[in-house]
């Protein structure tokens, strides 16, 4: 091979997303006739998940395959574009925004000054919600002690009347089991099921109503610039194809896990009405507006996003 990329993921070795990402590495090799080799490394192998941006820029890693919200500490705009809570109802909408709505260009406008180049976006899909108590709408969130990832997700839940708690992922299961928290924003339905979360929290909400993370594939900019154009195109194509493949695979697994959970009889899968989903989106939107003021780039993200949503009939103009 002519080029090798050592890329660190934000997922651990055993995680299904990481297993899929290794398939992406093979796709790259096939698409480039072996001229580009990608080595995928699990989270924390070289540096912590929040430190990959600096490591890629410094050339310690060649790239990262990571949740964009981990860069929010550098610029809150990354947090907003990574997870505009409630904005997307399916992965396809987000992919279209990135490809045709100016998302990709904006990502590079924000990322390149840091020394990284954004190749493309993917996502496992809409996250499911884990809960010990029945949740059938926004009103049920009032007073709910829930674990939510740092950033806007917490703000939105707080605005909806819930009490978000900071907890590391490794403490989620025990905390749910012992009742330290009632609910958790954790992962996709099939992953939650596989990790046994539904054994201790029998009222999952699916499809979720809150998060769909933007997972970015970015590489060191100097290294990207050194690639010939045909390889650049091949890598971009590979990420695009992978995104569709990943979201479809996860969706299929989720559906199977949901059927299994329903058939088991122990777990009640809750689904919110359209009205309640809209209510939640309205609460979320008030938080996007706040988040837009956090930085110059945040405002750009907000403007681009709302324009796209309105133009595509996903949101009413107001």
């Amino acid at each position: 091979q002519e080029f090798t990329f050592r890329i660190q993921s934000s997922d651990p070795a055993g995680n299904t997303n990481f297993v899929l990402q290794k398939e992406w590495a093979e796709m790259v090799s096939e698409k480039t006739d072996g001229r580009v080799a990608v080595e995928m490394l699990p989270v924390e192998t070289i540096v912590a998940h929040s430190e990959t941006m600096d490591a890629v820029a410094a050339g310690i890693l060649d790239g990262h395959f990571t949740d964009t919200s981990y860069a929010s500490g550098k610029d809150p705009a990354f947090g907003l574009i990574a997870n505009p809570v409630g904005a997307w109802s399916s992965p396809d909408q987000m992919f279209d925004f990135m490809e045709n709505g100016g998302g990709k260009e904006l990502m590079n406008e924000m990322l390149e000054p840091y020394g990284l180049h954004f190749i493309g976006a993917t996502t496992p899909g809409l996250e499911a919600f884990v809960s010990k108590v029945p949740l059938d709408g926004v009103d049920d969130l009032k007073g709910l002690k829930l674990r939510a990832p740092e950033g806007m997700v917490q703000n939105v839940f707080a605005a909806a009347g819930a009490s978000p708690v900071n907890l590391p992922g490794s403490e989620v299961f025990t905390s749910l089991d012992k009742g330290v928290i009632d609910a958790a924003d954790y992962n996709t339905f099939s992953t939650n099921a596989a990790q046994g979360l539904h054994d201790v929290a029998k009222h999952p909400v699916y499809p979720g109503f809150h998060s769909m993370p933007l997972i970015e594939v970015s590489v060191n900019k100097a290294k990207w610039d050194s690639l010939p154009d045909d390889l650049k195109t091949a890598m971009e194509d590979s990420v695009r194809e992978f995104a569709t493949y990943q979201s479809e695979t996860v969706l299929k697994r989720d559906m199977e896990a949901v059927e299994e959970a329903k058939a088991g009889g122990e777990i009640t899968v809750h689904d919110w009405s359209d009205e309640d989903r809209a209510k939640f989106r309205a609460i979320a939107r008030s938080q996007w507006e706040k988040a837009a003021q956090a930085s110059e780039n945040s405002q750009k993200v907000y403007d681009l996003l709302t324009t796209y949503l309105v133009e595509n009939g996903l949101m009413a103009e107001d």
């Binding site: 929040s50 500490g73 550098k74 809150p76 947090g79 740092e150 950033g151 917490q154 707080a158 978000p164």
Partner: peptide
């Protein structure tokens, strides 16, 4: 650099 959390302090 901030923590990126909802509170977002410049601790890092």
């Amino acid at each position: 650099e901030t923590s990126g959390s909802a509170w977002n302090p410049p601790y890092p």
